[in-house]
Write a protein that binds this DNA or RNA. Structure first.
Length: 545
RNA sequence: GCCCUCGUAGCUCAGUUGGAUAGAGCGACCGCCUCCUAAGCGGUAGGCCGCAGGUUCAAUUCCUGCCGAGGGCGCCA
């Protein structure tokens, strides 16, 4: 049984034997301060009032009751602070954790069946095929992919989907911008003026239609840079395909039948105000053309049939769109909770501390491909996933690319490379690891060693929470702390060498195998690579000074 | 005016369903390589957790108001 469950059960028994009511949830946490034990509970604080006792007295009674119970794990108990009950465990539980991690391997450690094979579609990026992806798209791309990875590890069947707005006004403007440039005419004022228009226009074969060709060109550009970022979509859902299949018209008539739409001023409107929207929204314009909304509703209906859970990653500028989309699916009888929209706040791109404005129209953009080229895929992903999506991000290209040494991604990767490097040497000097069951883990007594196992033990919880909150940056934070634990250990504790007892070498080598598992799981969830080696010379060649 | 997000060390950010002395990186300063990679380790300095109320045994965390920053409020997408 899990240590935590075991302790919770002990507490429950103790409460019962004291004739106290057992709360629905016993709060057991890892104290921030190691001096406060391995686990801590606040039940005494929470129950004191009801029990008409003061928290410290109650905690004391609990402690003496608990001490009379046998436990494989608990070494001693302590009442502390205002009435916390702290548990100090035998080290055996840590050794158990280490063995579990090594046995599970990176494929299975921190994996759960929470998702129970439920289907989830994660829709992200979904940028218009009217130009290359820019640096701002990178955040949603890396976030969405990492969320998908978290869900996969938690037992969901995940599909990564890119919705392609390959028709409509913006698409036509894009095509006419290309055509105008080919014809040597001025690009329409409301058209696209990016430098890529010129480049792409020069590539179009004479007999090709600018719209069809431009769409393909943009999509291949998207795929190329996403692939460079280690992101592969399972499907690219075309808006045009829904015109061909008739699903847009079908959606329109469904809304009509549901009494969710009406005609006014020659346009067809969605009664989104009935579901909390500020105003009703146009579905079909008076000129007969669809707005962006209607095909998107049709698309979401399609997704609702295909999956149990829909997760959309939208930029902050689309936030106002959430209410009307939920209104639409709700008016057709779907629970609005089926659709979860995660909003990523803006990315302010800088070069040398100076802001670079992102605007496709003016042509003043930094393409995502440039970012990847400048800082590399791993650094780009790690940087995008460094902080919560709820905060505006400042991404300084020069900082991330120039200051390679100070970049947190290298700190984490170096931790991994150091271990792999040590293992390579171990192999070279003929070190033979014993079978797991023959390793004497009680050799691991050093503070640095115990801290590492504690951190390793946290990973499954961190993954669970990051999945629940759709917050991959929590993995980043854990990885940085875990890497710090490793570097500290590596500095203080030698693994190989004549001055290290063979049994200690065996135990530490096993510890390192466990640490590799943790690092691999974390890096896999972020989609960054785990290099077997890293050498300073690589840096010296690039840097110039 | 309304809606969303944010406000924590000089800078960039963490902070678990409310818990004990609020953390990390960078920057500054001081130390540590005869040793599995110094892309590392240790230490010092640096905080009215935006402000004011409220709830609670306990608030950086929850609620309300205010101040400040960013985003949105189209028959654009």
């Amino acid at each position: 049984m899990d240590v935590r469950e075991s302790i919770k059960n002990l507490i429950k028994e103790a409460l019962l034997s004291l004739g106290l009511e057992v709360p629905a949830e016993i709060h057991l946490e890892r104290p921030a301060n190691v001096e406060h034990g391995d686990w801590s509970t606040n039940v005494a604080l929470a129950l004191a009032k009801k029990a008409e006792s003061n928290p410290r007295d109650l905690a004391g009674q609990l402690a003496s009751t608990l001490e009379s119970f046998p436990s494989d794990y608990v070494a001693r108990l302590e009442v502390a602070g205002p009435g916390f009950l702290n548990f100090y465990l035998n080290k055996a539980w840590l050794y158990e954790i280490l063995l579990q991690a090594v046995n599970a391997g990176s494929e299975n450690w921190a994996r759960s069946e929470q998702g129970a094979n439920r289907k989830v579609i994660v829709e992200f990026v979904s940028a218009n095929p009217t130009g290359p992806l820019h640096a701002g798209h990178g955040r949603g791309a890396c976030y969405g992919d990492s969320v998908a990875r978290l869900l996969e590890r938690s037992g969901y069947l995940v599909s990564r989907e890119f919705y392609v707005n390959d028709r409509g006004i913006q698409m036509n403007l894009f095509a006419s911008s290309l055509a105008a440039h080919i014809a040597g005419e001025d690009i329409p004022a409301d058209g696209y003026h990016g430098v890529y228009i010129k480049e792409w226009a020069s590539e179009i074969p004479e007999d090709e239609d600018p719209l069809d060709w431009g769409k393909k060109r943009a999509l291949s550009s998207h795929k190329e840079v996403l692939s460079a970022l280690n992101i592969e979509f399972d499907s690219w859902f075309s808006e045009t395909s829904m015109v061909d299949s008739g699903s847009i018209e079908k959606t329109l008539s469904m809304l009509e039948k549901a009494g969710a739409s009406y005609e006014k001023d020659g346009a067809i409107w969605l009664k989104s105000t009935e579901y909390g929207d500020d105003k009703d929204r146009v579905l079909v314009k008076s000129d007969g053309e669809y707005t962006y909304l209607l095909p998107d509703v049709a698309y979401h209906l399609d997704k609702l049939v295909r999956a149990d859970r829909l997760i959309n990653v939208w930029g902050a500028d689309h936030h106002g769109y959430i209410t009307r989309m939920k209104a639409a699916i709700q008016s057709l009888g779907y629970e609005p909770e089926r659709l979860e929209v995660e909003v990523t706040q803006m990315v302010n791109l800088q070069r040398s501390g100076e802001e670079v404005k992102l605007s496709k129209r003016t042509g003043d953009i930094v393409e995502l491909s440039e970012v990847v080229k400048e800082v590399g895929s791993d650094a780009a992903r790690f940087t995008y996933l460094l902080q919560s999506i709820d905060t505006t991000q400042t991404f300084d290209l020069d900082l991330v690319s120039k200051r390679v040494n100070e970049n947190p991604i290298f700190y984490v990767q170096y931790a991994y490379a150091r271990i792999r490097s040590m293992m390579k040497k171990a192999d070279q000097i003929g070190f033979a690891p014993l079978p797991l069951s023959e390793v004497d883990l009680s050799q691991l007594q050093h503070h640095r060693e115990l801290v590492l196992i504690r951190s390793l033990h946290e990973l499954p919880d961190v993954v669970e929470r990051a999945t629940r909150e759709l917050a991959p940056h929590q993995i980043t934070t854990w990885l940085r702390e875990f890497a710090a634990d490793l570097h500290g250990f590596y500095h203080d504790c030698r693994i190989l060498g004549d001055d290290v007892e063979p049994s200690l070498t065996q135990a530490r080598f096993l510890l390192m195998r466990g640490v590799l598992v943790g690092l691999e799981v974390g890096m896999e969830l972020l989609g960054v690579s785990a290099p077997a080696e890293m050498w300073r010379d690589d840096l010296a060649e690039e840097g110039d000074g």
